[in-house]
Amino acid sequence: MAGVMIAASFVGSAAAQDDVKEKVTTAAVVPSLAGRWTGHYYSYDHRGDPACDEKGCALTYDIVACKDGWCGIAVTNEKTCGAVGFRLAAADNRPANVFRGKFEVAKGSQAYTVEASTHSADDPAQRLDFVGDTGPELRLFRRSYPFHANFVRAGDAICTLEKATS
């Protein structure tokens, strides 16, 4: 009987160790989003907007760590820090490279509920893709999203939360 208890205890402790290893491994691969990111978002009607062309509408954000995850500060003229345009946090029950949050394209506009993910086996934080929808939750099984943006890392962030306009 003692042998059975020892064996059960060993199996339970091995399973617990595997669980701890998995959590440590997962935590180790969480990418840093800190830096300047440039890219385009795709909108249904961007006629007349000087920031838009056939590639979409140009956006630049400096992403910095903030209270609950990451904050994206809008950048204009390559050096002027604008308002915080989005906030992201690690997504529950999703891979470490996936974040969820809110994205406000223009100050005062309705915010999109978004999911953002980084991609690349070599350096997971060189590309950041967003999909989003208006409303309280993101519905990932829809066929299209009113908000879709792709960003690439362009350097170090210059803007800080203190420099961001409210």
Rank of each mutant, 00 (worst) to 15 (best):
L33R: 02
D156E: 15
V98E: 10
R139D: 13
E54Q: 12
A28K: 14
P50L: 10
T26N: 13
K102M: 07
A157E: 01
Q17A: 15
P136Y: 10
Q17W: 08
A14W: 08
P95F: 01
T25Q: 14
Y145V: 07
G155D: 01
R153A: 08
V20H: 10
V29R: 12
E22K: 13
R36I: 02
L33K: 04
S166V: 08
F103Q: 05
H46F: 10
E104H: 03
D156S: 15
L128K: 02
T118Q: 07
H148T: 15
C57A: 09
C81A: 10
C71L: 04
A121E: 11
F103S: 06
S144A: 13
A154I: 00
A34E: 15
F86K: 00
M5Q: 14
P95M: 05
N93E: 12
A51R: 08
E115G: 08
C81V: 11
R94K: 11
G69D: 03
C66W: 04
P146C: 08
P124N: 07
T80C: 00
I63C: 02
V4P: 03
L138S: 08
E115M: 07
Q126A: 12
E104V: 12
W70Q: 03
P50N: 06
A83N: 03
E22A: 15
V24Q: 14
V131L: 11
L140Q: 14
A116R: 00
S109N: 08
A125Q: 09
D133A: 12
G35W: 06
A58S: 15
L161V: 03
A90Y: 03
V29T: 14
C57T: 03
Y61V: 01
V20E: 15
A96M: 06
K23R: 15
E78H: 05
N93D: 13
A96R: 02
G85K: 00
A7G: 09
E54S: 12
R143Y: 03
F151G: 00
D133M: 15
F151R: 01
D122K: 09
A111M: 05
C159K: 00
K163S: 14
C57I: 02
E104Q: 12
R143W: 06
R47N: 13
Y42E: 04
V105M: 07
G135M: 11
S117A: 13
A34G: 09
L59F: 07
S166D: 10
D62Y: 02
D18A: 09
V24P: 03
R36P: 01
V64P: 00
C71M: 04
D45Q: 13
T118F: 06
G108C: 08
L140I: 11
A90V: 06
V114M: 02
D53R: 04
R94D: 04
Q17Y: 12
Y61G: 00
N93L: 08
G101Q: 04
A164M: 05
K79F: 00
A58D: 06
G72Y: 00
F99M: 03
C81R: 02
Q17E: 14
F99L: 01
C66P: 06
D92E: 13
C159S: 01
V11P: 10
K55F: 14
Y112K: 01
D49V: 08
R100A: 15
D122I: 08
L88N: 03
E115S: 12
Q126Y: 11
S32C: 07
D45M: 09
A58L: 12
Y41N: 05
